[in-house]
Amino acid sequence: MHFTSTLLAVVAAVISLTAATPVAEPQGIIASAVELCTSQYLQGRCTTIITPTGTCVEFPQGFHNDVSSVSSLDEWPCNLYHDDHCTSAPYFFDGEQDVLPTHDFNSVICTAPTN
């Protein structure tokens, strides 16, 4: 009888701990968006690409080596790269960049801001 009452007390304690412990909901992939334009001041042909945080995203066809302005639509910090694989020297921007120093960018990595 003592064993049964002890076992019931342990089970009750485990259940109460389990019920009181909050479970974190899965966050999934966090993503932002970047607008690319072929002319300065976000003019000309433009497209918006989705940029999962920390992931190199290659520009779509028609925008390789032909980007003159960009905007991080969520104002995330981003780096532009001249190559397709985000390995060349980066050019940093966040928010709107109306005039880029060159137009021959081909890929981007953005990261969620740390607050």
Rank of each mutant, 00 (worst) to 15 (best):
H2R: 11
H2G: 15
F3P: 01
F3C: 03
T4V: 12
V10K: 05
V10E: 08
V10C: 02
A13E: 11
S16K: 07
S16Y: 09
L17K: 04
A19D: 04
T21W: 15
P22W: 07
A24I: 02
A24E: 04
E25S: 11
P26G: 05
Q27M: 08
Q27V: 15
G28Y: 03
I29N: 13
S32I: 00
A33R: 09
A33M: 06
V34E: 00
V34N: 02
E35R: 15
E35N: 13
T38Q: 02
S39P: 15
S39L: 00
L42P: 08
L42V: 11
C46A: 09
T47W: 00
T48E: 01
T48A: 14
T48N: 11
I49Y: 05
I49D: 01
I50S: 12
I50C: 12
P52F: 09
T55A: 01
T55R: 04
C56S: 10
C56V: 13
C56E: 05
V57K: 06
E58H: 10
F59I: 14
F59P: 13
Q61V: 15
G62S: 09
G62I: 06
F63H: 12
D66F: 07
D66E: 00
V67Q: 11
V70G: 05
S71M: 02
S72P: 03
S72F: 04
L73D: 09
D74N: 09
E75F: 10
E75Y: 08
E75Q: 08
P77I: 00
C78Q: 05
N79K: 13
N79P: 13
L80P: 07
L80S: 00
Y81D: 10
H82E: 02
D83S: 08
D84V: 13
D84W: 11
A89N: 07
A89K: 14
A89P: 06
F92K: 10
F93Y: 01
D94R: 11
G95K: 02
G95L: 01
E96P: 15
Q97L: 08
Q97M: 07
D98Q: 00
D98A: 11
L100Y: 13
T102S: 09
F105H: 15
N106S: 06
N106E: 04
N106F: 10
C110T: 05
T111L: 03
A112M: 00
A112Q: 07
A112R: 08
P113E: 00
T114V: 14
T114G: 11
N115K: 14
